[in-house]
């Protein structure tokens, strides 16, 4: 057997390897990899883990991190449930205006966050069209409270679950649903025991995407949040505040704390994914 030379790439007559790989690696390095490495270097080597822990382990920072992750989880859970429901409605039902509704689901992807921020604030402020109604009927304040943050994050994360679940619903084999009915299951049982488990992996993917997006969200939140330290001050805002004080180490520490928690969460979701795929035998 001839000795094979070690190579990163399998041989192929396809042209353009050097050029395409070169452009990709250069740009990826300049825009993503080197800046990320600088952040991590600055944090773990320059500032040190102990120093970062000291920054993070203060009530104001801790409260901001807790708020960011709690609000993101609440908003993403809402989007998980509502997203599956909306995807179902958009795939299975016919109703007037369906195409417009379907297109509008992507509005949060297309609308700049600052626009969403001031618009949501305008309607949920105590003198806004929904804000005043909620205030008068239920005594509920939305803008400048944590609920306002939830609303902004629900807005931002709305399309993710819908868009991941929609294609899966489209591909459900009708015979599977019919089989459940012929075995005596009610429609509700078919939905909860047969269809929902089939949607779960995609829904979870959408949930993870929405969570990742809303944890770090800044533009749509700061207008509606009120930004009161320890109460409605989100972690990204605290990074901005540290930067404005030229406290770079403080900003780096909070940023790395956010990254660590985010990646832990996403890793957990990924593990659940792998487990559920394996359960289904991943055909």
């Amino acid at each position: 057997m001839a000795a094979r030379t070690f190579s990163v790439r399998a041989p192929t007559p396809m042209p353009g390897w050097g050029l395409s790989f070169g452009i990709m690696l250069t740009m990826l390095s300049v825009v993503v990899l080197i800046p990320m490495a600088v952040l991590l270097w600055r944090g773990f080597v320059g500032f040190g883990a102990a120093g970062m822990w000291e920054v993070v382990n203060r009530p104001r920072v801790w409260n901001a991190l807790e708020l960011s992750f709690r609000a993101a989880l609440i908003a993403s859970l809402f989007n998980l449930v509502f997203g599956v429901l909306l995807a179902w409605v958009l795939v299975r039902y016919r109703f007037p205006g369906k195409r417009i509704v379907d297109a509008a689901v992507d509005l949060p992807f297309a609308l700049p966050t600052a626009v969403a921020g001031i618009a949501l604030t305008a309607i949920y402020a105590p003198n806004g069209m929904f804000g005043s109604a909620l205030m008068q009927s239920f005594g509920l304040r939305v803008a400048y409270t944590e609920i306002g943050i939830w609303i902004a994050l629900i807005f931002v994360g709305l399309p993710f679950v819908v868009r991941t679940v929609q294609p899966v619903i489209e591909e459900i084999d009708r015979e599977t649903e019919e089989a459940s009915a012929t075995l005596g299951a009610s429609r509700l049982r078919t939905l909860t025991h047969v269809i929902l488990p089939m949607l779960a992996p995609a829904a979870l993917t959408g949930f993870a995407l929405a969570l990742a997006r809303s944890v770090g969200e800044y533009g749509s939140v700061i207008f509606i949040a009120g930004n009161l330290p320890n109460v409605t001050e989100i972690a990204p805002l605290l990074i901005v505040i540290r930067l404005e004080e030229f406290d770079y180490d403080g900003a780096v520490a909070i940023a790395i704390a956010m990254l660590v928690i985010s990646f832990a969460l996403l890793l957990a979701i990924n593990l659940i994914q792998i487990w559920s795929r394996r359960r289904m035998g991943a055909a």
Binding site: E175, E178, A179, A181, A185, P197, M280
Partner: peptide, 20 residues
């Protein structure tokens, strides 16, 4: 209704529940 008929139905694609 389908549920009330108690007809054992075998589908062409078998329609087994793949998550079970």
């Amino acid at each position: 209704s389908v549920q009330e008929r108690r007809a054992g139905f075998v589908f062409q694609s078998y329609a087994l529940f793949r998550h079970m």
